[in-house]
Simulated scan of single mutants.
Amino acid sequence: MMISNELEAKIENLIKSLECELYGIDILKENDSKILRIYITKSPQVTLDDCKEVSLVLSPLLDVELENYDNYFLEVSSPGIERVLKTMVHFKGAIGEMVKIKTINKHEYKGKLIKVEAESLVIEDGTKIEIQDIKKAQTFFIW
């Protein structure tokens, strides 16, 4: 199953019409089931009712757009307190939060994200990490 840019734009517009923002889309396979997981954000926070409403609005669109695909389960949720960071919008939204970053050359950095520049991130100890070198980035919470 693939989500085209055109379908993603339609999903994003519907989500915006409900005063939420599209954070990301994952397509997963768990056991023998396909899961289309759509993450949304909203200020000050996403509620269960927001997720339910987005799911109800997206279902008819997806039934039409993905009619040629095998059965799948639609899940709508917030990205969570410990969320994956992939885009510049994600990185900018995480300024002031604790982040964990793994680079393609296997270095791992942890610290508060203090600055996002055009091509790099800066964490609180002054370490500058080039965005092109990031393999995986996510926020984390100290319990």
Rank of each mutant, 00 (worst) to 15 (best):
S77D: 11
A9I: 07
V84K: 15
H107R: 13
Q45M: 12
E130C: 08
C20K: 09
L58T: 02
V57M: 14
N105Y: 11
R37M: 11
F91Y: 15
K100P: 02
T87L: 02
I101L: 11
V99N: 08
D70F: 07
S77R: 10
I25A: 01
G96I: 11
G126W: 01
E8L: 06
T139V: 00
H90V: 02
L22A: 12
E82K: 14
Y109M: 06
Q138R: 08
K42I: 07
K106Q: 12
G93K: 13
E53K: 15
S77L: 00
N68C: 07
L14D: 09
L85V: 00
V57R: 14
E12T: 09
K136P: 02
L7T: 02
I129Q: 01
Y69C: 05
K112D: 06
L121K: 10
S17G: 13
L85Y: 06
E75T: 02
P44Y: 04
R37H: 15
D49A: 14
N68A: 12
A94R: 11
L7K: 08
T103Y: 11
G93R: 13
G126L: 04
M2G: 05
K34W: 14
Q132W: 03
I114Y: 05
C20T: 08
I25Q: 12
L28W: 12
E6W: 03
L66N: 09
K136C: 06
E19K: 14
E30Q: 15
E6P: 02
K106E: 13
R83W: 06
D133N: 01
K128H: 00
E21C: 05
L121S: 03
M88P: 04
I123L: 03
M88K: 14
Y69A: 07
E108Q: 14
H90W: 11
V84P: 01
H90E: 04
E12G: 02
